[in-house]
């Protein structure tokens, strides 16, 4: 009994540690005071100002655009690559898997500066395109790592069965293989999307003046001083994620039933 209580208490403390900062961010986003931590009354002022802040809105747009495009492209390239790797002889498989692990095992900051060095030596203008290329680069390995296990689980004869029944390789891929590995592909796509949304380090080094993502915008704002607008922004994002997750959970439950 004591043990159970102790476990409960411990878990509660850890979750408090995880959520307390987020809770205060949300709380302060409704606080009608700019600098004081004290409660000065409820307001929606910061949300209004947030909507009016063009720089933040643009950063938000860039972040989502890049995350979306990077997720789509890396999911397509990653899925195709995973299939290719899956079919390789073990010698080549080792080579490709090692290459795949480079962006996973390399610290973000090294990915960032090395890509910066590359783009500069290619005389590319830093901006939206370089950001997108960088994001796709660090996303592809995660898609591959998410899809490969599904391919391993796949009955190797399924594709042959489809061909045997008259399907062309293309038809077999879309009607048989893809539906089977779909959970892995979706996991990979979601992973890629969230990694992109969350990224700061790589974006920081590979973007040029004028093109900001949310992370970069927040970073520069913290340099100037803490603004309650960021609290409001955090609240919106956090609640957005929460709603999305709950919806996903519900969908999964429905699918299971």
């Amino acid at each position: 009994m004591v043990r159970k209580l102790f476990k409960r208490g411990y878990a509660t403390l850890v979750y408090l540690f995880l959520y307390l900062p987020i809770f205060f961010l949300i709380l302060y986003s409704f606080n009608d005071s700019k600098y004081r931590g004290k409660w000065n009354g409820f307001t929606l002022r910061w949300y209004e100002e947030l909507l009016k802040d063009r720089a933040i809105m643009e950063a938000l747009y860039n972040t989502f655009m890049i995350a979306l495009l990077a997720a789509i492209i890396s999911t397509i390239v990653g899925t195709i690559s995973a299939i290719a790797i899956h079919k390789m002889s073990s010698k080549w498989k080792v080579v490709f898997m090692n290459v795949t692990y480079i962006p996973v095992m390399n610290p973000d900051i090294v990915i960032g500066i090395s890509l910066l060095a590359l783009f500069v030596s290619l005389n590319m203008r830093l901006g939206f395109v370089t950001l997108l290329l960088a994001h796709i680069t660090f996303n592809i390995p995660y898609v591959i790592l998410a899809v490969l296990p599904k391919l391993k689980q796949l009955n190797p004869y399924l594709e042959e069965a489809a061909l045997d029944l008259g399907a062309t390789p293309m038809y077999a891929f879309f009607k048989v293989i893809l539906p089977e590995i779909m959970p892995g592909v979706i996991t990979g796509a979601l992973l890629a999307f969230t990694l992109s949304l969350d990224d700061f380090m790589v974006s920081f080094f590979t973007t040029g003046s004028g093109v900001n993502t949310l992370s970069i915008r927040v970073y520069s704002m913290t340099k100037v001083g803490v603004s309650p607008k960021i609290n409001a922004l955090s609240t919106v994002l956090f609640l957005g994620v929460l709603v999305l997750l709950i919806l996903l959970q519900k969908r999964e439950k429905n699918l299971n039933e």
Binding site: Y157, L158, A161, D164, L165, E180
Partner: peptide, 20 residues
């Protein structure tokens, strides 16, 4: 001739039925 153009069909070892 590729498999999908042969007048031959196969029953596979582990059946290979499409589970979806």
């Amino acid at each position: 001739v590729p498999p999908f153009k042969r007048q031959i069909n196969t029953v596979f070892q582990r059946y290979a039925l499409f589970p979806h």
